[in-house]
Design a protein around this nucleic acid. Sequence first.
DNA 1: AACGAGACCTGGCAGC
DNA 2: TGCTGCCAGGTCTCGT
Length: 271
Amino acid sequence: MPELPEVETTLRGLVGPMTGRQVVRAVVRNPALRWPVPAGLDGLLAGQTVRSLSRRAKYLLVHFDHGTLILHLGMSGRLCHLAQFEPPGKHDHFDLVFDSGAVVRLRDPRRFGAVLWSAGDPMGHPLLRELGPEPLEAGFDGAYLQREIRNRRCPIKNAIMDAHLVVGVGNIYASEALFRARISPKTPAGKLSRARCDRLAEEIRSTLKDAILAGGSSLRDFFGADGNPGYFQQQYFVYGRTGEPCRICGTNISSIRQGQRATFYCASCQH
DNA sequence: AACGAGACCTGGCAGC
DNA sequence: TGCTGCCAGGTCTCGT
């Protein structure tokens, strides 16, 4: 479910309901997520007011006066905004209950998500400290990309999914951005010309921006108790389209495995 | 430093 | 209907 556009959409949907609200209690039903949910969160958060929300890579940050709650949705997580309390389901591992009566609930069947606490500067947290630049902010461009991948021999697909290089490019949008840039996912990273790095950086940005726009338009569905995220309706160029005709040239879309992940591409359009 | 493989989990689906 | 095996939107950790 969550690639960067979905996390960004989640963030935008929660800013209104959460900002300035006081936490009444934090409920941990299953602390066995990617890392153990810290004990004593309820004591830490009850009575505290949410000052702001932000995002770094795919981490959602909930800022309080005395620290920051760090949330990650993993592979299968979502944050449900409930106007009032509802009985939790099997995979509802964590609730933040607010003075408004609203509940923000983490639902994560695979439990690859995370709920962590940072008492100091969250950007100094071990999980955030080593991350590469945000693709939608200044600092990520063709010059940066070429400089960073100069000495890499791995396929470019693997390189752009490395969060130390650039954050937020997941398996879907890696394939999509490479298609838009007309670059084969198998190309050794260090072999890309500056011009192709410029193009790739731009297509990563535009692919993510388009997906955020699409996600934004399905905000209500996204936050419904059992709503479906709208991006399923999105028209991918290559992702999940093995054997179907390329939307540009009609050639059947190919799929391979790279780094134990599925990659999709058009062998005719991408070189 | 860079790379690949394994690990963490559960649910859905195709095939028999 | 039931079992088996494979697949899935992430990313840390470890061994080479």
